[in-house]
Write a protein that binds this DNA or RNA. Structure first.
Length: 543
RNA sequence: GGCGACGUAGCUCAGUUGGUCAGAGCAUGCGGCUCAUAUCCGCAGAGUCCGGGGUUCAAGUCCCUGCGUCGCUACCA
């Protein structure tokens, strides 16, 4: 069988500001998807990077009295440093200032220019000299530029244009012929409805008199290319287009992770650029929504721009990754609040999974001094004690959901199985069995099935919580895999933990976060989520 | 203005192609257990699925319309 391949990308992040929650989400989602493909036996390649040209960078650099390159270096470094903090494992980090990238951009531009799809034309528009940019009429307030309060001047400027309109029909057909080209479907519909109106050609250059911080056009020394070619081409330049091995190997399997605000460049310009350059079209787009923070859009003025590093430091990498995947329906917006993340950590991670892990292994320690007794086949069948089919169901549902980027459903499938195991304990009541030596085989079988269930869970959570996955597997004395994970294929057959294995009583997997400053009188009374904010339990992971 | 999304239990939200769809989690109340991280298990909620109209044998689920919230409108995930 032909080995399965998968190439995932994040957008290249624009270096005009430091990374925030949104960037972290995209990177983590792509990382989770990549790791999932890995456990599904795909060979993967994961690309992320930074977009570093354009006037905003020049302006930002001027403000800091530095050069654009130096400025870009600094911010790019912040994005690079974020990856290990989030445990995102990329194969390559591309920067649009990389010489290799610049060359590919020029090559692609030349190719399209030679084939006649780029033309020179004059453009007349409303130009604000203060902002050094053209305005659309609708952007103006009372006909004036907001920043300078000045009416823009009508000026003419000659530029290069890309004939997008020529490929409009082709693109519509392509999207319709490939139903998963843009996912989820709502965004496909959005693009198709946008394509109902005639497409305008795209201005792809800026005269050097206005902007020099960019890639010089290969066919005109006096111009730099502006944004689209510069940025989007990173996806192929990073793979060594046109002749690179990686390009040949991975390009056809490409899926780009993007947030909903950049679906037009990715869903329209990019495929048309590829088509015009006679390059195979990428496989598709996975479009996600925005994170609101405390109910409103992240913005500097509201002051709710969330720093992923702070959140990670406070709650831990795995809980943060879990929360992002569990809480957002891929494609839709979601809300980020500390209340919700704490609630998720306490109920899903500490109470459900962590406590299950703890109670099962504690019982095994207590009743069998940690020795895995194994299942008695006859008793298992007779008493219907196997958890294998429930585990299988979880694996199947998990796989199905994760393949479609339905991360919240994938997580849900695992947690359903966790819940089944908690119920199973209640039903079988091992503490009662333990009171009578006659039940030792039943007790052993029950605990064995639970331990096996935990083994499967440890494999499934790997894409989302790699550290926890490993920690569980170490505790369960599972053989360490060189690649760092067990594949889905390897989760079965049932019954892999060897009889006689000694399993130590584990450390707490996820400490509960104490939301009480003052202990309530009744043990049942849990704290309402209102006064948890700053109080994080002392034992909480800080790494 | 144009385009689009959303409005389902106290809260946060799921609900493929219309027919066990009236759901999950959290919160709350009561009960049970005691192995476990004061955790786990069971039971409970009468929510006009925003209002109105339509299509249909059958509509949160499709169409129209009204109201409400919000996003995008070209280079901030």
């Amino acid at each position: 069988m032909k080995p399965k391949k998968q190439f995932f990308t994040t957008p290249i992040y624009y270096v005009n500001a430091k990374p925030h929650l949104g960037h972290a989400y995209t990177s983590i989602a792509a990382d989770v998807a990549t790791r999932f493909k890995q456990i599904d036996d795909y060979e993967t390649f994961f690309l992320t990077g930074t977009d570093e040209h354009g006037d905003k960078i020049v302006q930002a650099a001027q403000k800091q009295e530095t050069t654009p390159k130096e400025y870009a270096d600094n911010i790019s470094q912040l994005f690079q440093d974020l990856l290990p903090v989030l445990n995102v494992k990329n194969n390559h980090f591309i920067r649009t200032t990389d010489p290799g990238h610049i060359q590919v951009v020029k090559d692609v531009l030349s190719k399209i220019y030679d084939s006649g799809d780029i033309y020179f034309s004059s453009y007349e528009g409303l130009y604000c000299f203060g902002c050094e940019r053209f305005y659309q009429e609708r952007e103006l307030i009372d006909g004036k530029c907001q920043d300078h309060g000045v009416e823009p001047t009508v000026i003419k400027e000659s530029n290069y244009f890309f004939k997008m309109s020529k490929y409009q029909k082709w693109l519509i057909n392509h999207i319709k012929a490939n139903p998963d080209f843009i996912q989820p479907e709502q965004y496909k519909n959005e693009i198709l409805s946008f394509l109902k109106d005639p497409l305008e050609d795209l201005c792809i250059s800026r005269p050097k008199s206005r902007l020099t911080w960019g890639i010089t056009l290969p066919f005109d020394e006096d111009y730099v290319t502006y944004v689209w070619f510069d940025a989007l081409v990173n996806y192929i330049s990073a793979l060594g287009y046109p002749d690179g091995k990686l390009f040949k190997k991975f390009w056809p399997s490409t899926r780009h992770f993007v947030a909903k605000d950049i679906i037009k460049p990715h869903g329209i310009y990019w495929p048309i650029m590829l088509k015009a350059a006679d390059i195979e079209i990428y496989n598709g787009l996975n479009v996600h929504g925005f994170w609101n923070v405390k109910g409103s859009k992240m913005s500097k003025s509201i002051g709710n721009v969330t720093d992923p590093i702070q959140v990670t430091n406070k709650y831990g990498i795995d809980p943060f990754r879990y929360f992002l995947m569990r809480e957002m329906v891929f494609g839709l917006d979601a809300n980020f609040t500390e209340e919700t993340i704490v609630s998720r950590i306490n109920s899903d991670l500490a109470n459900d999974l962590g406590n299950l892990f703890s109670r099962v292994l504690s019982m095994n320690s207590r009743y069998f001094t940690g020795e895995v007794k194994g299942s008695d086949a006859k008793i298992e069948k007779q008493k219907n004690l196997s958890l294998a089919s429930d585990a299988k169901k979880a694996v199947d549902e998990f796989k199905q959901a994760m393949s479609l980027c339905e991360f919240h459903k994938g997580v849900g499938a695992i947690w359903q199985f966790i819940s089944i195991m908690n119920k199973y304990i209640d039903t079988t009541a091992p503490w009662t069995l333990a009171k009578d030596d006659a039940n030792v085989l039943i007790l052993g079988t029950v605990l064995y099935n639970l331990i096996e269930g935990l083994r499967v869970v440890s494999c499934l959570i790997y894409p989302i919580m790699p550290q926890t996955s490993l920690k569980m597997q170490e505790t369960l004395c599972m053989e360490k895999r060189e690649k760092g994970f067990y594949s889905l294929e390897e989760t079965f057959p049932w019954g892999q933990i060897k009889k006689g294995t000694i399993i130590e009583k584990p450390d707490i997997l996820f400490p509960r976060i104490d939301t009480n400053k003052i202990k309530p009188k009744s043990h049942k009374k849990k704290l309402s989520a209102s006064n948890f904010d700053k109080s994080v339990a002392p034992g909480n992971p800080v790494k």
